[in-house]
Amino acid sequence: MKVAFKSDVGQVRSHNEDNGGFTHNKDGILLAVVADGMGGHQAGDVASKMTIELLSSKWQEAKGVTTPTSIELWLEQSITEINAHLFEHSLKHPQCQGMGTTLVAVVCTSQFVTYAHIGDSRAYLLNGNVFEQKTEDHTLVNELVRSGQITLLEAENHPRRNVILRALGTERTIKVDIKTIEWDEGSFILLCSDGLSNKIKDEEMFEVLKKDTSLEEKVVDLINDANERGGEDNISVALVFNSDQENRGDGDDR
């Protein structure tokens, strides 16, 4: 398994509220994560950083969590616990009131990927020549599209397209989307914050991933493309390649 991660402040924001990275559990299984924080002042930074650190720490201590069922259960329990921790933190610290974060996380083995997500950070799968978004945005605009009230084209420039309906830490209880899918050797999983997906179309992401370049170069190319188109938001990208070559990170590359 090969992995690359990079987060960029973008061209407009003064600080980066995104966070992410990758780490392995005691069985050597990979976890990759991207979180996009929100809230006044530094609260978004706190929410995303706390989420990544807590989830990574929990995964590093996990052992025997190797099957789709056990991984799905672990993700649900861990994210629920982290949500409660964030929510209580916001209640105890006035400067963090209303803080929250999106989260997209994948646990990857050579046979399958289990992903969990809340908010509008996304997971994409490139399997062969098929590139598709696997997560569904928890946003007002996406609900309007699903209900037929607006078109996909109208959604791209909708004045309320940044309204998120579900986020980590904003409510006492949450619902997380969790699913396991198969993937083949040579496939990619791409995780990103909306700083990328709002600027780069799916077919353009596909073209970058198909280039004969390294994982790190692909991630940099995607971020550069988003910045060249305005870079109004923070941009974070995690890329996982399903190869038979072992390439472990230490969980601190974020």
Rank of each mutant, 00 (worst) to 15 (best):
T23H: 06
N25T: 08
N25E: 11
D27K: 10
I29C: 08
L30Q: 09
A32W: 06
A35M: 02
A35N: 04
A35F: 02
D36K: 04
G37P: 04
G37M: 07
G37D: 08
M38C: 03
M38Q: 09
G40V: 04
H41T: 01
D45G: 03
A47I: 10
M50P: 00
M50K: 13
T51D: 07
L54V: 00
S56F: 15
S56L: 02
K58F: 11
K58G: 02
K58E: 13
W59K: 05
Q60P: 00
A62M: 04
A62H: 08
V65E: 12
T66W: 07
P68Y: 12
S70K: 14
I71Q: 14
L73A: 15
E76F: 09
Q77A: 06
T80D: 10
I82D: 05
I82E: 06
N83K: 03
N83S: 01
A84T: 12
A84H: 12
H85L: 09
L86A: 02
H89Q: 13
S90Q: 08
S90V: 05
S90G: 06
L91H: 14
L91K: 15
P94I: 07
Q95L: 08
Q97E: 14
M99K: 09
G100E: 03
G100K: 04
G100Q: 08
T101H: 03
T102A: 05
T102W: 08
L103H: 04
V106A: 13
S110F: 01
V113C: 15
Y115L: 14
H117R: 03
I118S: 03
I118L: 11
I118E: 06
G119W: 06
R122V: 01
L125D: 00
L126V: 06
L126I: 05
N129I: 04
E132N: 11
Q133G: 00
Q133Y: 01
K134A: 01
T135N: 09
T135Y: 06
E136A: 11
D137R: 06
N142T: 10
N142D: 12
E143K: 15
S147F: 01
S147R: 14
S147C: 07
G148W: 07
I150M: 02
I150K: 04
